[in-house]
């Protein structure tokens, strides 16, 4: 490939990248636009007039008003935000607590039949929510957890994808290191804690980020298992915002976007490693 070709390719790809990032930019600028500006730009959506929607690359009169309004005058926003946080952190903590040791066992411990267990985990991991919804509903109901945050958290804690992915990371640790530690008389718990965890840390980070993004974005599960509105996460609350409050809608959306985007930017290296390993050959 010569230089001109490379420049053309770079421009084409950069153009596509801009296109893909445009909706995000759109959402962010929307949060800094006043209700008045949004109503003017989006008039066709509101009043059904004939002209087209317009949008400026930057807000003409940037304002923090909608953001302040959401933070000050919308107590239900805080409730939902907190629900999202509880659900996400609950799932994350549970997955790490039981999932990391399990992944370690499947990758490095000589358990009989672990190949079969792993195959079972992979099959379960590939089942869409449509398959799991009714089975999990039954358990959650029998445990008396319906309409509690536990109904969303507990089944997700035992999803098998994190275990599978972490197991991939742990597999990369050479067995000789562990054998050497065993010969030196280190106990299994200590080997796990002092060798497995530190060497598998990129995997823990990758799983943590992927799980966070997934849990923060849950829609089907809370929709099925939570009836009480005050238990809803942000993902169910945002679509409820009426067009007349569109300023607040954009602001609330931005506040939901920020944690996910920050995590994405700061943990991108691990995230890409995690995605790459989840697709690697067996």
């Amino acid at each position: 490939m010569n230089k001109v070709q490379k420049i053309l390719l770079g421009m084409a790809l950069a153009g596509l990248a801009l296109m893909l990032c445009f909706p995000i930019w759109f959402g962010i600028t929307g949060a800094f636009s006043s209700q008045w500006e949004l109503e003017t730009n989006l008039a066709p959506v509101f009043t059904g007039t004939e002209e087209m929607v317009t949008w400026s690359f930057l807000p003409q009169a940037p304002t923090l008003e909608p953001l302040v309004q959401v933070l000050m005058d919308a107590p239900e926003f805080f409730v939902m935000f907190w629900n999202s946080v509880t659900i996400t952190l609950g799932i994350l903590a549970g997955q790490l607590l039981v999932g990391v040791p399990a992944a370690w066992a499947l990758a490095q411990l000589p358990l009989p039949g672990k190949g079969k267990i792993l195959s079972g985990y992979i099959v379960l991991m590939l089942m869409p929510f449509q398959v799991l919804m009714y089975p999990q509903y039954l358990v959650v109901r029998d445990l008396g957890l319906l309409d509690t945050l536990g109904a969303v958290i507990l089944p997700a804690v035992f999803s098998t994808f994190p275990v599978f992915l972490l197991h991939r990371f742990f597999l990369a640790i050479p067995g000789e290191i562990l054998e050497a530690a065993r010969i030196d008389g280190a106990g299994e718990l200590r080997i796990f804690w002092q060798i497995g965890i530190p060497l598998g840390m990129p995997g823990v980070m990758a799983v943590g980020i992927l799980s966070f993004l997934d849990s923060w974005n849950l829609i089907e599960q809370p929709m099925t298992y939570l009836k009480t509105k005050s238990l809803w996460p942000l993902s169910l609350f945002l679509p409820q915002i009426q067009l007349k409050d569109i300023g607040m809608g954009f602001a609330a959306a931005l506040l939901m976007l920020i944690p996910a985007l920050l995590l994405f930017i700061s943990g991108q290296e691990y995230l890409e490693q995690g995605i790459a390993l989840s697709g690697g050959k067996d």
């Binding site: 959402g27 974005n217 945002l238 954009f250 959306a253 996910a260």
Partner: peptide, 9 residues
């Protein structure tokens, strides 16, 4: 990384 709900508008 973008939650579906935050780009619904």
């Amino acid at each position: 990384a973008v939650p579906a709900a935050s780009v619904v508008l």
